[in-house]
Nucleic acid binder design. Sequence first.
RNA 1: UGACCCAUAGUGUAACGGUAACACACCGGUUUUUGGUGCCGUUUUUCUAGGUUCGAAUCCUAGUGGGUCAACCA
Length: 558
Amino acid sequence: MSEDKKESLNFIEQIIEDDLKSGKNNGRILTRFPPEPNGYLHIGHAKAICINFETAKKYGGKTNLRFDDTNPTTEETEYVDSIQNDIRWLGYEWNGDAVYASDYFGQLYEFAVSLIKKGLAYVDDSTPEEIATMKGSPSVPGQDSPYKSRTIEENLTLFEQMKNGEFADGSRVLRANIDMTSPNMLMRDPIIYRIKKEHHHRTGDQWCIYPMYDFAHGQSDSIEHITHSLCSLEFIHHRPVYDWFIEKLGIFPSKQTEFARMNVEYMITSKRKLLKLVNDNYVIGWDDPRMPTISGMRRRGYPAAAIRNFCDKAGVAKRENTIEISLLEACVREELNKTALRAMVVLDPVKVVITNYPEDKTEILHAENNPEDPSAGSRDLHFGRTIYIEREDFMEQAPPKYFRMTIGADVRLKHAYILHCTGIDKNQDGEITTIYTTYYSDSKSGEDVSGIKPKGTLHWVDADNAVPCEVRMYDRLFTVADPTADDSKDFLEFYNQDSLKVIKNALMETSLSESKPGTQYQFLRQGYFCTDVDSAEGKIVFNQTVGLKDSFSKEVKK
RNA sequence: UGACCCAUAGUGUAACGGUAACACACCGGUUUUUGGUGCCGUUUUUCUAGGUUCGAAUCCUAGUGGGUCAACCA
């Protein structure tokens, strides 16, 4: 490979390349994605997944999937399954079988015993309140617990009794013996084991003491010989703790590196807030197409490749950031433009009669499925004397630069003929009921010899063959980019009441009536849509994924 | 009243001591049987003040601003 240009590396890649140069770990790279199985994955997790998997892949390494299941209170098998499903859908396969922090409970217990034997851990009988008080504050040093001076033998006995279930929940904890005066609050003798007589989703009732995050994560990394433990910046204060345990235990030195979390406009990732949206029926579920969950984005029609590309383009650094939603949408359009099948659907139909088209005549027209991809083939379109077009594609009083249908003007029907509009019918309310047109019989798509060059082209459906369908149109879930910015207001105050609009009586071309859930389309001139799981025999439902770029509406605003 | 992290166009990210660039957004043009796509182009950037250096976005110091850290959560 010739390298006239140095590829730009993010700071994590630079660390890895330095490690590679120095021969660290013999060039072996192993990362990990460590979710707690207590909820559904969202866009923030997608970012972490991409960083961990892509970074490893780039350097010939692998990525472990490890469930950080050290708190039996919150964790469930249901989440284990959905997390695995979401990761695979995103396009990643982990190294071997999924692993669990709970696989290491025995080893972790031994680690704790060895720490006690070195005088580096002690059992504390203080109440949670007492422990909190003695911890001090960021600017006030903490104080030693009266139990800190217990003998090794006493600690060994008490810890074993804790393990054997001889004490009540919350009555005692095991603490690391570090430094109560450290400026880092987490180094002030962190709790490493607590008593919880609860059923664990995998180990059942085998244990009644469970390790805390700080005594499980680093050690799990070490046990698996993770070389690069990549996590978000909020764990940066944990790193000294992480390193302390590895050093004192004398185990494999995994290295933690922190990157800034990715925030995205109009999206929230707080589990508590997302749960509120679901429980209070602001959305229909965790996979509501408006949700920032992976399952929601999937149902919305965002391709996995687009999400991966988005995470890549958002980059990796250490500064706080908020990515514009337009970047995500650009990635989605970029992908879908290449892959989505084109189709014609009229969302708000108005009838058009072609008065000079023979009453009993019908035609089959041919339409390409994707102009970007000839291999996508073509499909048949029915055509006849009566069709429907979009109500907003006709104007009685057309402004300049209006290229659509208006009386006296010509406009092309996509894949069909050029029409000349001659007049309209209205009902008593002034609403247009029928538009009358004539067609140029020599202007058929592909064999047009009419010489007429209308500026506009409209999508349409044939009245005799169009099929009714439901279309769900989505807007941002919130009315402001960051609904959590104002502490004095509840984020629900910014819920967008118009985030879902259901169109019950749209008309689709016949070819769509067999559509399977998940299939992605570009409805010509409307945007990208995909078939929803709510679709049933004879009742197809579409979700709007994202609109097309629309320079006409900008023109109108001027 | 402590420690730690951060500061480059509107938003992100790059430039690794050699004179700021890429993407998205924006604006303009062009192509087009999707007002889509494609193509071309315009505008806009190193928090402040000192210092080191022939030379600083980059190194040092201070300041300013933002963020993070005290749950028997992860």
